[in-house]
Design a binder for these strands. Structure first.
Length: 214
DNA sequence: GAGACGATTTTCT
DNA sequence: GAAAATCGTCTCG
């Protein structure tokens, strides 16, 4: 059994401009990136295998679509920062702010392949029955990494909560390993449910849900 | 200040 | 596959 499934030497700190691009572009390109959180309890991290884009271009599913509120304020800040929100009484969702400052766009991280800190993740998510169950959903990965209100607005280029991206060649290999990228509709929305703004690695076991299709 | 609802997870059938 | 759990946020009065 190998220690890690990924090669950390192939990862770099992204530039701010990586996140300032179109939400759909970032939502797709962020697959294969690494999300990591250092806390007093230790480090937990994993590879992003599923994400959804939330745009301001005719996308009623976007939290910022109807304007700024106290909750979504971070979405109007500069790109590369964390937008974290609470929903369904139990769950925190982790997003990355994207596009130009003041636009209001974000990318929701929906699933990770757990890589570092599996023991810590199991403590934080005692209900997970398998390792894949640790991070195969947006609420699950936030719980496994210890992401909550305190991480609202953190700079993901410089904080204890960070994202790093693979080199182009290594990313290409990751994508090929998992059968390519699927683009489809987003999960759980009542508005904007028809827009194909969700991306995931086709054959990756940590993808939260596979849409039935004909 | 009240009422409705949600970018989900878990459990039960 | 269906439904409950659960509470902060938003909207309206």
């Amino acid at each position: 059994m190998k220690e890690h499934n990924i090669d950390f030497s192939r990862y770099r700190v992204p530039t701010r401009s990586f996140f300032s691009r179109d939400a759909l572009r970032v939502g797709k390109d962020i697959l294969g990136a690494y999300l990591c959180h250092d806390t007093p309890d230790g480090r937990a991290g994993g590879m992003i295998v599923e994400a959804e884009a939330y745009s301001m271009d005719n996308d009623p599913g976007c939290h910022a679509f109807r304007g700024m509120t106290k909750r979504n304020m971070a979405m109007f800040g500069p790109p590369g920062f964390a937008y974290v929100y609470f929903t369904y009484g139990n769950h925190w969702m982790f997003n990355v702010v994207v596009e130009k400052e003041s636009r209001g766009c974000a990318v929701l991280i929906r699933a990770l392949e757990p890589v570092e800190g599996l023991e810590l993740m199991r403590v934080r998510r005692p209900k997970a029955k398998t390792d894949i169950d640790l991070c195969n959903g947006p609420g699950k990965l936030a719980q496994a990494l210890g992401i909550g209100r305190d991480q609202y607005g953190l700079d993901l280029l410089k904080s204890d909560l960070r994202i790093s991206i693979p080199t182009a060649a290594y990313r290409k290999r990751i994508i090929e390993n998992y059968g390519g990228i699927i683009q489809t509709t987003r999960i759980g929305l009542s508005a904007g449910a028809d827009l194909p703004y969700r991306f995931y690695l086709k054959d990756h076991p940590a993808v939260s849900r596979i849409i039935e299709s004909g």
